[in-house]
Design a protein around this nucleic acid. Structure first.
Lengths: 199, 199
DNA sequence: ACGTACTTAGAACGCCTGTTCAAACTTTTC
DNA sequence: GAAAAGTTTGAACAGGCGTTCTAAGTACGT
């Protein structure tokens, strides 16, 4: 019987280091700067070894996405089930590091079909999770679900977070701080005015 | 006295063709696929000629941005002064082609300082234009400017448009169509309920 | 018509890319 | 301690990159 690979203990650790280095490069120099050699140098290994762990660059990008997304899906589920779902959601969505990486992955996905498929799958899962939660939450926050249906609200929160965080991170002078202050205040009010339904 | 270059008649046309080809490549294959050679092939010229018109790739990217942005700044000014400013703004912001190009330029700007500075300048101008307009418009649409100040509203509209259009263009199954329908309906209502202030 | 200035082609520079291959090394298993 | 399996290296492939240089070609003002 084939038992498949029996990787050594240090392998998982090395995979992690490669993924970390890749994220770092994407954030600092953009996705286009990711190459077997640039990653290898950052980790302190030889280029072909990167291909030993991730046979193609596509695999590497997908692995970066999966690791990030896996964490974020978990966190989003926790946020939506937390005592203050809107606040937790907003906090999670407005994480600068995640957003910057997201832009790079989005742009990279434009011309890497394998990556694009993966992004689509994750986007779908997260969004549906958010919309399901909103089915209940909208009423609790006193929002008219007829006028502001879940798909609109979900897209708005995510889009707003993206817009504000991107401008802030890049240093674009579009008054993102004022937007954040206003949003924080709005979240405060909505959480205060929330009437939790009994089960 | 130096009189500078006296370009021939056809040069402006050729510059245009190079910019067109660059946009096309960015949309189809991502900003990383833009190279003197790929652009040259698309236009039907030799690679060094691209550098004759745009001495470095940075210059080329900046020129693409400037041309796009120039048009969009004009259109945004018109939109904000039109009979239905919100509808016009939303229509402009949710143009798919513009948004896709925007993602690429944003990602490219991450590691091209010259481009980044240009993006920042334009983002600032457009946003300030929008916020100025909102100072008047918010009251007309019956929105409490205390609770929803201009920086928040502007960031929300732009972010929502980005989120929805991106998901729709990429084919991500996040119910973007439902969000658009809801937003269109919302715009209808707000335009109908608008009370224009006399001057 | 001529000369000047603008435009284009071609070759070449050094460097980087993804990936493959065979060989060497190291850890584990028996 | 030998054999097996997992890991790492170094060299090499074919190709793309931005850019520069020289020389040829072409439109235009006079």
């Amino acid at each position: 019987m084939a038992e498949g690979r029996r990787p050594r203990a240090a392998t998982e650790e090395k995979r992690k280091r490669i993924l970390d280095a890749t994220e770092e490069i994407m954030l600092k120099e953009g996705y286009a700067a990711v190459s077997s050699r640039s990653v290898a140098t950052a980790v302190g290994i030889q280029a072909p070894l990167v291909h030993y762990y991730f046979s193609t660059l596509d695999d590497l990008f997908v692995a970066v996405l999966r690791r990030r997304a896996g964490r974020n899906v978990e966190r989003m589920a926790e946020a939506l089930a937390s005592p203050e779902p809107l606040r937790a959601w907003w906090k999670l969505a407005s994480d600068p590091r995640g957003t910057a990486l997201f832009v790079e992955l989005l742009a990279a996905a434009n011309h890497r079909p394998a990556l694009k498929a993966e992004v689509g799958q994750i986007a779908r899962d997260v969004r549906h999770m958010q919309m399901d939660a909103l089915d209940t939450l909208l009423g609790e926050y006193g929002i008219d679900a007829e006028e502001f249906p879940p798909p609109l609200v979900a897209a708005t929160i995510q889009g707003l977070a993206f817009s504000v965080v991107q401008d802030q991170a890049a240093g674009y002078d579009t008054a993102p701080d004022q937007a954040i202050v206003a949003m924080d205040r709005l979240v405060d009010r909505m959480e205060a005015g929330r009437t939790r339904k009994r089960r």
